[in-house]
Design a protein around this nucleic acid. Structure first.
Length: 492
RNA sequence: GGCGACGUCGCCAAGUGGUAAGGCAAAGCUCUGCAAAAGCUUUAUUCAGCGGUUCAAAUCCGCUCGUCGCCUCCA
């Protein structure tokens, strides 16, 4: 039974979709005016996980993630660069798509753009004006928050307290200081659409209501986004949507926690943010995704070199074990094509048992509000058992084809949900090696020449020279790994 | 000022009533010519502090201390 933390009730609730077997979910994507940062990566990975797990659980999921492609920030950027606004929005839609692809995000069912739904937006605003929930003033249309009873029910506040905070700009044209724009009159030179209130464009918030209700209906199951969107964005979406439809807008509101940079809040104004692109120059995209999944999606997560390095070490450990297994499997496969031969010992028994319970434990973790951190711990548990068998098997030489194939299958099943560990292990390790090699001050052919020299030295029992070479390479950041089949090297 | 979250081993991080997962780091041993990897063993009688409820609390309640977030564009 899946339980989801619902911001609306501040509690975990059993998940019961509106229509049995089907889930409708909407996630606030991005306003496309700049490259995405690590915070966007987190939010999108978090809801990608939700999407994948719901599918894995057997639901038919309709997942909508929007692009807000008309907005003040886009217009500002376009003016600065001296280009039409859609040059900016299209540029950053493309950049977003590329970034998300690198993070291995599944493609949502629909990816609507605000500018393609202006007709629906206008209709929605008109409906609100007609019902008295909104009012027009000098070409702008505002939503009257006092007309909506449930206002602030998501962020659990009240209007008086909000005003006491007193960072609300006073605008004489507003009936109430907290009223927000549904439609903005176009200033000279700004892009506009014609409307019953004159030329203008949608305000922020209304596009999400229009697109989600059009694609998912007036009431749908899950709406997600970053914690910072609770107020005002989602609060306003509720107000607009429910005032218009008279029905509950969303059943489960989900919000992911922030990314901190070295324990400080990351924000554009502080200037301490990293774009996804910058991070991927230094870290593998799978390591970044693995790192993001290593904490629960609602907890704050601290982005630092230390923490990324830890995540990388952990992922390396998993892939190394899997790679060792695949190597044996490729040998066993020919010796034992039926895959029936087995040896029974303690390690094998333990791995068999862990394997049998893996999917159950995985689902139990994920059912508890998508606890990916716990799910990953279960994988590490399995890897430990696998390593035990691997160590054993190296001694006994017994074929374990069937067991290893089962491990491969179970891992792949989980990998499909987490969106990590999808790479062929040898491929991952090679990728990491080449990434790290590019930072080395020594050429690969030189390393290999030294390894060859060391091999002959060892053959001649010249261990002094052999150790000199090992030490020299270690200084260069190269670690040598001797094995019966020869010497491998890796970047430390 | 209002609202809210959090404080678990050196670091990261699960655990929301039944007696402390997992990862990283560290130490010893096995293996190795020496190493590395891997395995084994060890590393929190204790969950910021103090009280309370309970047969039983990291988990519930209260207070104190500390950190952080939202209230303005923000994932």
């Amino acid at each position: 039974m899946l339980r989801i933390y619902n911001t609306l009730s501040s509690a975990k609730e059993e998940f019961v979709p509106l229509i049995p077997g089907r889930v409708s979910m909407y996630v606030c994507g991005v306003t496309v005016y700049d490259n995405c940062h690590i915070g966007h990566a987190r939010a999108n990975v978090a809801f990608d996980l939700v999407f994948r797990y719901l599918r894995h659980s057997g639901y038919d999921v309709t997942y909508v993630r929007n692009y807000t492609d008309i907005d003040d920030k886009i217009i500002n950027r376009a003016n600065r660069d001296g280009v039409p606004f859609n040059v900016i929005s299209e540029r950053y839609i493309k950049a977003f798509d590329e970034d998300m692809a690198r993070l291995n995000l599944a493609i949502p069912t629909h990816q609507p753009k605000a500018t393609e739904y202006v007709e629906e937006i206008i209709a929605l605003v008109q409906k609100l004006v007609d019902s008295g929930a909104a009012y027009q003033t000098e070409g702008d249309v505002y939503f009257a928050v006092e007309k909506f009873d449930g206002y602030l029910k998501l962020s659990h506040r009240n209007l008086d307290d909000m005003l006491a905070g007193a960072r609300v700009d006073v605008d004489e044209r507003k009936h109430h200081p907290m009223d927000f724009a549904l439609w903005k009159a176009a200033k000279p030179g700004e892009p506009f659409w014609s409307s019953p209130w004159g030329n203008g464009r949608p305000g922020w918030h209304i596009e999400c209501s229009a697109m989600s209700m059009k694609l998912l209906g007036e009431t749908f199951d899950i709406h997600g986004g970053g914690k910072d969107l609770v107020f005002p964005h989602h609060e306003n979406e509720i107000a607009q949507s429910e005032a218009a439809s008279g029905k509950p807008f969303v059943r489960y509101w989900m919000h992911n926690g922030f990314v901190n940079i070295n324990s400080e809040k990351m924000s554009k104004s502080l200037g301490n943010f990293f774009t996804i692109r910058e991070i991927l120059e230094n870290y593998d995209s799978e390591v970044l995704r693995f790192f993001l999944l290593s904490a629960h999606y609602r907890s704050p997560i601290d982005f630092s070199d230390q923490n990324l390095a830890d995540a990388e070490a952990g992922l390396d450990r998993i892939y190394s074990a899997l790679s060792g297994m695949e190597e044996l499997l490729s040998k066993d496969g020919s010796a034992d094509p039926s895959g029936t031969a087995q040896v029974a010992n303690e390690a094998v028994a333990e791995l068999t048992e862990k394997l049998a319970g893996l999917q159950h434990r995985f689902c139990e973790a994920m059912d508890d509000d998508f606890n990916s951190a716990l799910a990953i711990a279960h994988i590490f548990d399995l890897i430990r058992s696998l390593n035990r068998v691997l160590a054993d098997r190296n001694a006994s030489g017994a074929p374990l084809t069937a067991l290893f194939r089962q491990v491969r299958y179970e891992i792949a099943t989980i990998a499909e949900v987490l969106g990590v560990l999808n790479t062929e292990p040898g491929g991952y390790l090679a990728r990491m090696k080449s990434r790290k090699s590019s930072t080395l001050k020594i050429a690969v052919h030189e390393i290999e020449a030294l390894i060859a020299e060391r091999a002959s030295a060892r053959k001649a029992k010249d261990f002094k020279r052999s150790d000199e070479i090992r030490a020299h390479l270690l200084e260069m950041g190269i670690e040598l790994l001797d094995s019966p089949s020869g010497t491998e090297w890796k970047v430390k």
